[in-house]
Nucleic acid binder design. Structure first.
Lengths: 170, 170
DNA sequence: GGTGGATAGTTGAGGGATCAACTACCCACG
DNA sequence: CGTGGGTAGTTGATCCCTCAACTATCCACC
């Protein structure tokens, strides 16, 4: 508990860091669990479908390229294809060829999709409010946003530099 | 963008809250994505298996009741049963009847499980360090821990009170 | 103008997650 | 006792995700 060698200080986390890390893990896990369960039990859209439609709703013509959507939602292309296929079967979105790039596909929100989004929004937002926003002091929540933006940036960088790091080991 | 009615102020989030919320979502998504990818590409254990073994490693006799494990990892009982079955087949853990409660099952880490944990730990910790800890100022990281502990508590409460809330609507 | 390497998106097979049903057991209360 | 409601854990059908392979297109360069 007390003394650590130099190596250990560099490799492991301190007690305080460990504790913070555990709280982070538990917090994120329990939060998505709670929010997802609100969606599954009371709303017409899963959390994933809801997020997808939110993105679309903010795009011009409520339409986006598949790959832009995948990046924004942090989904693999393959997963997005499957998800959109299911949502298309339910009439929530529709796909059509993109103009200007014949490889591209546009995903557009349908009227039914918009209606589902409108139906789900109040329940979704009120759950986010109840479970996340109101559990924290305003400054805490604001800080959480700023800190997680840094984490997002750092994670993005980590994804891109992986091979670069192994190169450094040569 | 400017004026909101009283109702809207109560139902929706402000611009600043929205931004913080989006950053939170993106940050958590990109982080698990980045950390999971380190496990999948370079370590002998997936992130989920690793977390399970970490929990076991800290318990007396490296043994825990299935339900305790499920609660600690925020997994459904069913999911834990399936996961442990797969890990048992790989020789990482073993199950045996719990004494004192004949319904209970104990899950214990094997030597091979411990070895796998030891092998995975340095890569895991260094990824957490690189992507999360060192991306933030020490105070920021410490604050993140404290804030997420509150979120965990609030989410736990939300999970338990769901039916209670509908009762309030009668 | 055609070749090579990147990018956009899809597909299907296999593995993992979810949900509802089920067995087995505990325990409080009559 | 014994009955009833709760808890512990498992099962299997179904659905969803992942991964690797594939087609089709774009574009830079010679």
């Amino acid at each position: 508990m007390a003394a650590q060698t130099v190596e250990e200080r560099d490799i492991w986390l301190t007690e305080e860091q460990q504790a913070a890390w555990r709280h982070y893990l538990e917090g994120t896990a329990r939060f998505v669990e709670a929010l997802g369960s609100v969606h599954d039990r009371t709303l017409p859209l899963s959390l994933g479908e809801y997020s997808l439609l939110v993105q679309l709703s903010e795009a011009p013509d409520r339409t986006m390229r598949m790959s832009t959507l995948a990046d924004g939602l942090v989904l693999s292309r393959s997963r997005l294809t499957h998800t959109v296929a299911r949502m298309e079967a339910r009439g929530l979105v529709s796909r059509c060829a993109a103009e200007g790039d014949r490889r591209g596909v546009n995903c557009a929100m349908t009227e039914a999709g918009y209606a589902a989004l409108v139906a789900a929004a109040p329940g979704h937002v009120s759950a986010v409010r109840r479970i996340l926003v109101e559990a924290l002091e305003p400054e805490e929540f604001e800080m959480l946003g700023r800190v997680m933006a840094k984490v997002a940036a750092s994670s993005r960088a980590a994804g891109g530099t992986e091979e670069g790091l192994t190169v450094l080991c040569d």
